[in-house]
Simulated assay, not measured.
Amino acid sequence: MDHSVLFAQTPAALPDILADIERLVSCESPSNDLAAVARSADVVAELGTAQLGAVPEQIVFDGVRHLRWRFGPGPTCVLLLGHHDTVWPIGSLTAHPVGVTDGVLRGPGCFDMKAGLVMAMHAAAALPDPSGVTLLITGDEEAGSPTSRELIETEASGCTAALVLAASADGGALKTERKGVSRYEVHIQGRAAHAGLEPWRGVNADVELAHQILAVQALADPAQQTSVVPTAMSAGTTANTVPAQGRLSVDARVRSVTEQVRLDTAIRALRPVLPGAGLEITGGPNHPPLEARSSADLFDRAARLAARLGLAPLTSTAVGGASDGNFTVGIGTPTLDGLGAVGGGAHSDDEHVFVGELPGRTALLTALLSDLLRPAGAPLPY
């Protein structure tokens, strides 16, 4: 068995992994603070350079810093994908200091997903030859990847696999299915009138909104696990005026491309109910679904490798949230998600990582990389 594959599983590696995670978590990086994201990018670059022996390219789009390491002269075979921005505002460390107690690491963004970034660096560094690997760490995933989506899709194009270092699901399960996401804005145009003197001259945007809320919610399909949720809403100006305008936000989640198309067609076919009302629909699908068939072969490979490494049997699950893995599978690249840390509490006061799981998970990632880079017909290196 090749000990380079098991490098990150040895007890000697864990202190370095922990030190790197704590350093990265200690640099706060909320997505909406470009200066903070830039500081975080510098820390990621410093840690990655020390581990990987190479300085990353720093790619800036609209002020957002992304980092890319490409190894070897040839085309990329495997894309390692993660993000260094978080949902936590500056100052969160005061109430949630970084530290380890009783084998549990805590700190804002440790689970989602700074521990996964460190795992990716150590796994790639453990490869005898990382040629064919690209490590891409973006700075706006928590904001929906508005500046990095095109970069992600370009890097994933033509790859054998994309491995996403998002945090695991409960119990360490890999995320082999993610729902696709569509977001819409329903804009209502009514007509104002005095609510007491002549309300009949108005077209009430509130009432039209009520009709549209019911129509939108009726598009959900529990049998298909399709959710269509009216969320933020606004209308009206004063308490004695028939509202002339209204707006409704809609969040929709689907398991399949077919269902995403069905839902998009239905929402765009909505029509006003009240005479004289106007209706405009904006938005649409923004994350294609990560369907189970797109990750099945990679999960089976990872499960076999986990058994060879003596790790607990891998499990998998479907989740409703989207990640950058939705983009990679959307262009046809097989994708395995949830390969990051084992823990819980993402985006909450209880965010945490189980320290004891870090070596084995990093070793699994190293083994999976090695296996994916193995020439056809070559023997397993472990």
Rank of each mutant, 00 (worst) to 15 (best):
D102A: 14
D102L: 06
D102V: 09
D102W: 00
V104C: 02
L105N: 04
L105S: 02
G107P: 02
G107S: 01
P108E: 05
P108H: 04
G109W: 00
C110A: 14
C110Y: 00
C110Q: 06
F111M: 13
F111V: 02
F111R: 01
D112Y: 01
M113F: 00
K114Q: 12
G116T: 07
G116P: 05
L117Y: 00
V118Q: 01
M119I: 12
A120C: 13
M121A: 05
M121P: 00
H122F: 05
A123F: 07
A123Y: 06
A124T: 14
A126E: 09
A126V: 04
L127Y: 09
L127F: 06
P128Q: 03
P128D: 03
D129L: 02
P130Q: 11
S131N: 13
G132Q: 06
T134N: 08
T134G: 08
T134H: 05
L135K: 04
L135V: 15
L135I: 14
L135P: 00
L136A: 09
L136E: 05
L136C: 09
I137Y: 00
T138S: 12
T138Q: 06
T138V: 15
G139Y: 02
G139C: 06
D140T: 09
D140P: 04
E141W: 06
E141F: 02
E141N: 07
E141C: 07
E142K: 10
E142H: 05
A143D: 14
A143K: 13
G144E: 11
G144R: 12
S145C: 14
S145N: 13
S145H: 09
P146G: 11
S148R: 10
S148H: 10
S148C: 13
E150Q: 14
E150N: 12
I152D: 02
I152H: 03
E153Q: 15
E153H: 08
E153V: 12
E155G: 12
A156Q: 04
S157F: 10
S157P: 04
S157D: 14
S157K: 13
G158Q: 11
C159A: 12
T160P: 01
T160K: 15
A161V: 06
A162Q: 11
A162P: 08
L163A: 08
L163G: 09
V164G: 06
V164D: 06
L165G: 08
L165P: 07
L165H: 07
L165M: 15
L165D: 07
A166C: 13
A166P: 00
A167C: 15
A167R: 15
S168P: 05
D170Y: 10
G172C: 08
L174H: 11
L174A: 08
K175G: 10
E177I: 11
E177S: 14
R178I: 13
K179R: 14
G180C: 12
G180W: 03
G180V: 10
V181A: 15
S182V: 03
Y184R: 08
Y184P: 02
